[in-house]
């Protein structure tokens, strides 16, 4: 039998060890979780504050971009092709180049930006400098166009013939019929709940 004094020493030691164990695990975990919860919410509030503070500037930029892009030619409008052909003819005339052929071409890659792409195979004929100037001018017309040179070769095999034939892939880029809906849905449609960043707790988490 152990005496009362020894039992008390053991009890004091036991309480100390148990406390250390409980504080080191359970209590520490609760404190850490509570602080992480508060920290995540503080971060969310800081993010919200920051984004709300600059929302006026963002909305102004959206309006400006919509105005700028809305003025561009739209898909499904024959006017876009008319304007491109008129520009091509004017450029060819200005640079003394002949537009030999323009054919619709099959698309190669899907357009990543949701713009409507109309690919064309274009053949030009002219002198070296004139062809290069036309190449440069074709992409900067009223209808934005991506111009890629595929071949540039002497028209005939005669080495002294300075006439060149250029085969180009021209991709006309037009706006979808409703650019506002396609590119800025939040400016037109009712706002649905956006996904929120996940939090470790809900605000009504019981303590």
């Amino acid at each position: 039998m152990i005496d009362a004094a020894r039992a008390l020493w053991y009890a004091a030691g036991g309480v100390t060890l148990t406390s250390a164990l409980v504080f080191g695990t359970v209590v520490h975990e609760r404190v850490t979780a509570a602080r992480a919860h508060a920290g995540a919410l503080a971060q969310r509030v800081a993010d919200d504050d920051r984004i709300v503070a600059r929302s006026a500037r963002v909305r102004a930029e959206r309006a400006e971009l919509l105005r700028e892009l809305g003025a561009r030619p739209r898909a499904g409008d024959s006017g876009a092709m008319v304007r491109f052909l008129s520009d091509a003819a004017a450029n060819a005339r200005a640079h003394r180049v002949t537009v030999e052929q323009i054919d619709p071409a099959p698309p190669r890659d899907p357009e990543p930006s949701a713009l409507v792409a109309t690919p064309l195979d274009v053949t030009l004929q002219g002198r070296y400098t004139d062809v290069l100037h036309t190449l440069s001018a074709l992409s900067r017309g009223a209808v934005p166009a991506r111009v890629e040179l595929e071949t540039l070769a002497r028209k005939d095999s005669a080495p002294d013939d300075a006439m060149l034939e250029a085969a180009l892939r021209v991709t006309l880029l037009t706006m979808p019929p409703n650019p506002r809906r396609a590119f800025a849905p939040a400016a037109t449609t009712a706002l649905r709940a956006l996904p929120r960043p996940a939090l470790p707790f809900r605000s009504e988490e019981p303590r």
Partner: peptide, 15 residues
């Protein structure tokens, strides 16, 4: 307000 601002920011990124 933050959701509206985020949606506008997403629009601006697309544009």
């Amino acid at each position: 307000a933050a959701d509206r601002a985020r949606a506008a920011a997403a629009d601006v990124a697309r544009l």
